[in-house]
Amino acid sequence: MASGSKHVVYAALAGNLAIAVTKFAAAAWTGSSAMLSEGIHSTVDTSNQAILLLGMKRAQRPPDARHPFGHGMEIYFWAFVVALLIFALGGALSIYEGVERLLHPEPIHQPWVNFLVLGIAIAIEGSVFRIAWKELRHQQPNRSIWQALRLSKDPSVFAIFCEDAAALAGLTVALLGVGLAYFLHMPVFDGIASILIGLILVATAVFLARETLSLMTGEAASTALLSDIRGVLTADPRVLELGEVLTMHLGPSEVLVAVSLDFDETLSGEEVETTMRELTRALESSRDEISRVFLRPVRSIGEAPTPVLP
């Protein structure tokens, strides 16, 4: 796992832990529903970062007899758990708290405490968000943010980025809700803000769940990587034709490649074996994320057979 990814998670963990404590203190002092929802939000985020660190550690375990391809995919499971926690503990509880406040509105006391805490929280979350932004741009420098999120295979980066983006959006909503509730003397806005924060968290959870579920179920490599693989193989004059080119992510930076290909018929069996070894080395050196290569020689590819992994 890249050290940059860990740096992002540690920064988010420290920031959210500090913010959670101050938000709960402010909620208890002022009675703000939106601030309580934000405290729940930061607590969930803190737990999520701890879970991601656990997943990153477990994913780094070496291959063994039961897991010959390693444990890299385990990070996707823990990222999926993070999405579930955001949905259940963050989104659902915030919506519930907001509905309760709408049914039983109460005035906010000493709102300056909320404004102060929200201002500090925005500054801290903004700095953490900047770290996640820089790491995402480092991994996907030539993509839009939306494309970078969809193409990133590292949950420790895209999950933190989404959490921090949701946190900044939630803080903005909380600030508006508390401000409107106080200046207009309408506590209902505090409850509405809490519900909106919950909806932001639910939307974030749904997006993360979809992305991590795809990776958990064997997502293929990017089209750019597939193109590079085809380029390396077709550039060799000993390769006449490619059959199926199958890829699967074994982890954020580990890709399995399985290819069926037709070699020049004039090659002897020994020459075919030599060619396969050379092509395997060429593929592994072409991109750092290619960690496992399986080549299957076939004759006269018309309808490409399904490669059988040895």
Rank of each mutant, 00 (worst) to 15 (best):
D264V: 10
G98W: 10
A14D: 12
G243R: 01
A165C: 02
P310Q: 11
A14K: 07
K153N: 13
K23Y: 03
M1A: 09
G251P: 10
G179K: 11
K153G: 09
Q139T: 02
L213D: 04
E273H: 15
G218T: 12
I95P: 09
G302E: 00
L283Q: 08
S300D: 10
S227G: 07
L240Y: 00
L309I: 04
T266C: 06
V157W: 01
Q60F: 07
G179F: 15
F24V: 14
L53K: 04
G98Q: 07
I86E: 10
L176T: 13
A167R: 02
M186D: 04
L267H: 01
S214L: 03
L53I: 14
R292L: 03
L89K: 04
W112C: 07
T43V: 14
M73H: 04
Q49V: 08
E244D: 11
N48Y: 01
M56C: 00
A220G: 09
A123W: 10
E211M: 05
L256F: 08
I51E: 04
A92W: 04
G218I: 12
R61H: 10
L13D: 01
D236C: 00
N48T: 11
L283D: 08
E265G: 12
L54Y: 06
I145Q: 01
I229R: 03
I19L: 13
P310G: 12
L250C: 09
Y76V: 02
V99M: 02
I120G: 08
D45V: 12
L215R: 03
A14N: 12
M216A: 04
F129T: 11
G179I: 13
G4Y: 02
A159E: 03
Q49D: 00
E38G: 08
H7L: 10
P107F: 11
L175I: 13
R137G: 06
L89A: 13
A20Q: 05
D190S: 03
V9W: 08
M35R: 01
L267W: 00
P237S: 03
H185F: 05
